[in-house]
Design a protein around this nucleic acid. Structure first.
Lengths: 328, 328
DNA sequence: CGTTTCGATCGAAACGTTTCGATGCTATCG
DNA sequence: CGATAGCATCGAAACGTTTCGATCGAAACG
């Protein structure tokens, strides 16, 4: 009872309509047999499944389903250049959590290099700030009414925010150093951005006169270079506060290269609370709940897609003292 | 001449049909005015564009366009758990190149956690082996006739392969160590996989009796632990050959922690040729053209999508000697 | 001036689903 | 026994494009 063309040419892939015909039921019944949206008698379902198998039908065409449903099942995540965005383990940890939640909800995660034209159907977009401030696609996405979730970002209208308490974390770190007797403190910053501004404000609650070494990406080599040329310029401090553990690691490496002992001659603090197995000192750092942040982000995405109202989230951080800071 | 409902309820987003009506042209003409598929008089185009602007039409609905075209514009890339897959800079460098080429072609890159059910419309899928051998979605994708490009993978029917010359690289590395006088050589491996088997074969061309320390992921901590317990078990060698620079870095770190000098007491070699700024010794390694590999992969994807025949690719590697290896 | 060619426009047919509403039909209830 | 409910099934209408083929003038040609 196979369908006609055994001598077929470039066989068109079978559609649900073909399956329905083969099974001798209507298109809608065939659909229900698969989706389970409406009840179908066992016998009929059997027949439909058999027809599908015999025709080699591989399930509903996702393109058609998407159009019908008005959903693509894909969430975009805007990152800068991939290799720089994910070089920091903190970004990865968060991405991991996002992916896990989205995956469980049957959604895919699409990497959006920063300035990509978005000709793709996205159900929502996550914008993970990494020291960036502008976003080429923002206006376009707003115009298209795509739900937007911004992580650690500036206040853009129409977006949901997921953030951490940068200021409190930085302030706690400042107090820790102050308690240790440090007075000449310098800081290595990220590019101007919301998290950077908040953290600097927190640090200045304790050290109003903190010196800015310079700004660089969250990258070991970049941090080495930036702090290195600062030292080369004759500057110094008893403690350096960084904006990521990766930066801090760069400062530690560079300090040692120059014969400085950490924490004997120099205290170094980071931010994030990631694990850097290759660094033989445990960094004093502000631990942020990366997995929670990722999950909160993903949950916000799901809620926004579902059309629910979503409240912004600010997650707490905590200070973890390690061996990279000591008495001044 | 604005359309009717100024007091509209939950306004349905305007469609191209609305634009056409507003502009007083047919649907097909409106479509042509945007896509440029067929010539349209300047005056008409003007009118259509104006109508689109006045209605706030944001361009063709990607879902509908995709269904019509039979393309989704999305390419999947199968990775394991994201955080482990991208912890190695080598994976990132390659991903970066893939993304760049795909992006230029207007395609998006979707991260596929390994065992995800693929209910999404993918134009093609990249399977980047990272010591993995099986692939849950493989059968499904083949059944759906999705073009598959496998990087460094086993020979699966119907897929295009992008590979590097593992064996020659490993053999060159072996000869280098042999020339330095090493005879007691051990190797840290990846999980059993095509690249691992090839590399081990290459190494055995020079050291048939090479001892296997153990298998672990390309991760500093994992490498430290694996080689550490091997040493703890009383084993030793004058040189350790690793399957990635990250593994090699782990071995270097662990060796030093135990008071071994590299390369004085122990030579360590890696694979990949990535930059690890925090490691103060330049690794002897097999440099693989990561960006080329990524570009070749992306080009293969594009060609397969276009329905062209694509030949498998094997890229050459070269030995780079650094300060991590020395006389036995 | 009759014929051909070409450019601009239009109508209609896909693309392959999901889902709304309607239609019988068989049990259930009072 | 008539009214009501519930189940299985069906037909048809979306979803919003792109594109094929046809039509209609006007310009170009001999």
């Amino acid at each position: 009872m196979l369908s006609s063309d055994l001598v077929s040419g470039p066989t068109r892939a079978p559609t649900l309509a073909d399956v329905a015909t083969e099974a001798g039921v209507s298109l809608s019944t065939a659909s229900h047999a698969f989706s389970g949206t409406k009840p179908v008698s066992a016998a009929t379902r059997e027949r439909v499944l058999a027809a599908a198998a015999s025709l080699g039908w591989t399930g509903p065409n996702p393109l058609a389903r998407n159009l019908r449903r008005g959903r693509s099942g894909v969430v975009g995540i805007a990152v800068g250049r991939l290799s720089t965005a994910f070089r920091d383990p903190a970004a990865l940890a968060m991405l991991d959590a996002v992916s896990e939640v989205l995956d469980a909800a049957g959604l895919g995660l699409l990497l959006m290099p920063d300035d990509a034209e978005v000709g793709l159907p996205l159900d929502a977009v996550i914008y993970d700030i990494c020291g960036r401030e502008t976003w080429g696609a923002y206006a376009d996405l707003v115009a298209r009414d795509v739900p937007l979730v911004v992580v650690e970002g500036p206040a853009w209208p129409g977006t949901t925010f997921i953030d951490i308490d940068h200021r409190a974390g930085a302030a706690a770190l400042g107090r820790h150093l102050h308690d240790l007797g440090h007075r000449r403190v310098a800081t290595l910053t990220l590019e101007a951005s919301h998290p950077q501004r908040e953290r600097e404000a927190g640090l200045r609650e304790v050290f109003p006169e903190v010196e800015v070494i310079g700004a660089c990406a969250s990258d070991v080599a970049a941090a080495q270079e930036t702090v290195g040329s600062w030292w080369d310029g004759g500057s110094s401090a008893t403690a350096v506060v960084c904006q990521s553990d990766v930066q801090a690691a760069g400062v530690v490496v560079e300090a040692r290269r120059r014969g400085l002992d950490v924490p004997g001659d120099l205290s170094v603090a980071g931010f994030d609370g990631v694990v850097l197995p290759w660094l033989d000192v445990e960094l004093t750092t502000v631990v942020q709940p990366l997995a929670d942040k990722g999950r909160a982000t993903a949950r916000a995405v799901l809620a926004r897609i579902a059309g629910e109202d979503v409240e912004d989230v600010v997650l707490p951080v905590r200070l973890r003292t390690g061996g990279s800071t000591g008495p001044a």
